[in-house]
Design a protein around this nucleic acid. Sequence first.
DNA 1: AAAGTTAAATGGTCTGACATTTGAAAGCCC
DNA 2: GGGCTTTCAAATGTCAGACCATTTAACTTT
Lengths: 238, 238
Amino acid sequence: MNDTKHFKPIKTKRAFEEVCEQIRGEIQTGNLTPGDKLPSERELAEQFQVSRSTVREAFRTLEIGGVLELHKGVHGGAVVVSGNERPITQTMADLLSLGGISLQDYTEARACMQREMIRLACERGTDEDFAAMEDNLSRMRDAGPGISVEDRTHLTQEFYDGLARATHNGAMVIIMRAFTEPLSFYLNQIGVDRTWDVAASREKFLKHLRARDAQAATDEMIGHMDRLHSFMLSQQPG
Amino acid sequence: MNDTKHFKPIKTKRAFEEVCEQIRGEIQTGNLTPGDKLPSERELAEQFQVSRSTVREAFRTLEIGGVLELHKGVHGGAVVVSGNERPITQTMADLLSLGGISLQDYTEARACMQREMIRLACERGTDEDFAAMEDNLSRMRDAGPGISVEDRTHLTQEFYDGLARATHNGAMVIIMRAFTEPLSFYLNQIGVDRTWDVAASREKFLKHLRARDAQAATDEMIGHMDRLHSFMLSQQPG
DNA sequence: AAAGTTAAATGGTCTGACATTTGAAAGCCC
DNA sequence: GGGCTTTCAAATGTCAGACCATTTAACTTT
């Protein structure tokens, strides 16, 4: 009996977790689909034979998890949504600030993800996809070097969003956002390298993308990220 | 005045969200670090000048978000943890069952992630990393074809975990889990292809990994995943 | 010294109340 | 009748206080 790993840690279930599970179960079986509205808190409390607070905690849990949306007012209530990437992004940000993953690992993983996205975007990107990125780039140029940190990170995020969209893969868009948004937050705090003309690099990048030259585009991006990375590390406390 | 996109949607803040923000703020500034214990619900309610239920909703939110752990009993309370991948995995699963991302996009993204992991694992994987995968593989073989669906998916998850760990990148381990766990859940429901000897494929895969031949390993894995993918689609309702 | 008992602190749940928000219905003016 | 304002009801958001369940330290007993 040396193989005791099948024992699972005991965890007494809390009432609100049971409620969550039942609601999630209804979603997995298809009884509840996006757009459906759940009964009111008071009504559900009766059905589950628990108090309203317990139902509230369950609703809160599912809202934070991006499964429900809660609306106030008469005809308000809990509505099933088709999913929400917010929890993923938020958790990534938390993992970074809590040290669950290091900035090094994070940026490396980000580079890996983008490498694949470039590959897909070169395969499938349409003229509209690239035009959207071009438009973003021109707005960045118009803003000039005096652009505020917030506007600059916002435009940057939009640019990478465009790249992700060019893959025509919904999961990629979500992953991209999970990797760019915490970074934006970080840069808003430590500032950006104002001596650096990012538009020029992105222009070259976009040109390679349009030429479907994944290798050249990747090389351009890696160089870009290396510079960003060393800037961030130089600004990091400690 | 055609550029009105700077207006952000109004969202009246709820009290518990303010509490969450303040606590998250303390974490971002480093005033709260993993291991720190927060005051009790009753005490924090006084400090924030809100009711205990409001503090509870905030705690619940942060617990679900993987930022806090709540312990009962005297000397229990809320403790800051160093991060938790659970919310990411859970959200991925929800996005799949809610249709926020399609099974196709999901499996494609998974293949892309693994492609990069193989690349890194070939660069950095140690003998110990590969030995752990080998051990997992031999346990799979020992279990034989009569293995239960749950045990088989569990071993599979462990195998891919081993691959992720071989990258020596913490973010990759988390991403891998986010992509394998919802799949395990899915396969536990629809069953697995029992005519298929996955151990043989993994053995070849591992051999290529040890030879640091990323291309061959990737090819082996892609073939493996294609078979899995077509099996899943064949079992899908509709 | 070991074992069992008690008490206090804390999260978990319940109850009931009031505040706030929101959309629809009713009423009003033109 | 059309458009505007007022009213109202239902739902979430918050509050206050109580009790239950769990955990652990301190105490008591053997």
